[in-house]
């Protein structure tokens, strides 16, 4: 009796998974045979069956690029910066917004800060360039304090900072949505209880609000870890120039420039595969660590 019920329950769950799994099989797993292109010299006209096998040549080539380590370092530094600040800023913003009681102001602020997300980097880049112009607001400000103007976007000391900063600025409003949603899930009773205990606003924040959204924070940061090798092609492509290649050239911009010389699908696929392996490993590790230390299963 119990067993049958269990089984029928299992079937119910399987049936619920089925529609989505069918889509995943057709549109994710079937196309995955394309991964073999990473081990070929793929020529579109010859198709996958007709293209020549080259083994690990495409991967070996990555190591032969004279500044492959430099490109890798730029990618990781920029991506890491974006992950760290792109997590902290939205959380702080969401927590601050949560302190506001004026409903219309809360909603308006929320709506405005999420708007930059909808402008493409091609558009935003023009604005960023103007802001950092010699005669732009930032340099005018510096000059008012007697500093020399700085060409931020052509400075290897500043380029990554500007990239991370402008990315955080563009996306924090959108990133905050998930935390704002999580904040709504906190039991108001907890606030009442703590205020009866005499906790002030800051103490409430620390002992009620923050723990309330901690699972969401851990979940989002773990999923973001999967982007450790994605530094953001559109943004960097729109903002970089040859002077800052040494600090700003990342995997994706490099692959793009290689691709310009002809359709180099194999090389791009090999890089993509490598990125996937790294992301997959990191994500699995993050999940394991999270289970072990926080007793929280992310997925």
């Amino acid at each position: 009796m119990w067993k049958r019920k269990y089984r029928s329950g299992q079937l119910g769950y399987h049936l619920m998974m089925a529609p989505g799994m069918i889509f995943l099989i057709i549109f994710s797993f079937v196309p995955m045979f394309g991964i073999v292109m990473a081990f070929q010299d793929y020529v579109p006209a010859k198709g996958i069956l007709g293209s020549q096998w080259v083994g690990l040549t495409n991967f070996e080539y990555m190591l032969q690029i004279p500044d492959s380590w430099n490109i890798l370092r730029n990618t990781v530094l920029i991506a890491l910066g974006k992950i760290i600040f792109g997590t902290i800023v939205p959380i702080v913003f969401a927590l601050l917004l949560n302190e506001i009681r004026l409903k219309w102001a809360k909603r308006s602020i929320q709506t405005i800060v999420y708007l930059p997300n909808f402008l493409s980097w091609a558009v935003v880049a023009a604005i960023v360039i103007n802001v950092f112009d010699y005669h732009g607001p930032i340099n005018s400000f510096l000059q008012a304090f007697g500093h020399q103007p700085i060409m931020f976007l052509a400075s290897n000391d500043w380029f990554r900072t500007v990239i991370i900063g402008s990315d955080v600025w563009k996306n924090f409003g959108y990133g905050a949505i998930v935390y704002l949603a999580a904040l709504t899930g906190i039991d108001p009773g907890l606030y009442e209880a703590s205020s009866i205990d005499g906790a002030n606003r800051f103490q409430q924040l620390l002992h009620v609000t923050f723990p309330g959204i901690l699972p969401t924070i851990m979940l989002i940061s773990a999923l973001n870890l999967g982007n450790i090798l994605n530094a953001g092609f559109d943004q960097i492509y729109a903002l970089y120039n040859p002077i800052v290649y040494e600090t700003g050239d990342v995997i994706d911009t490099y692959v793009y420039r290689v691709g310009l010389l002809g359709q180099q699908y194999s090389f791009a696929t090999a890089i993509g595969l490598l990125k996937s392996v790294v992301s997959f490993t990191l994500l699995i590790a993050a999940n394991k660590l999270s289970i072990k230390f926080a007793n929280l299963r992310i997925f």
Partner: peptide, 24 residues
């Protein structure tokens, strides 16, 4: 050989040209 190596040589060239002209 250009297929894979040229992108890197162009990068080197662009970087050097621009840096020399702008005095870096």
């Amino acid at each position: 050989s250009m297929k894979l190596k040229w992108a890197n040589l162009v990068k080197l060239e662009d970087e050097t040209f621009l840096k020399i002209v702008t005095g870096q």
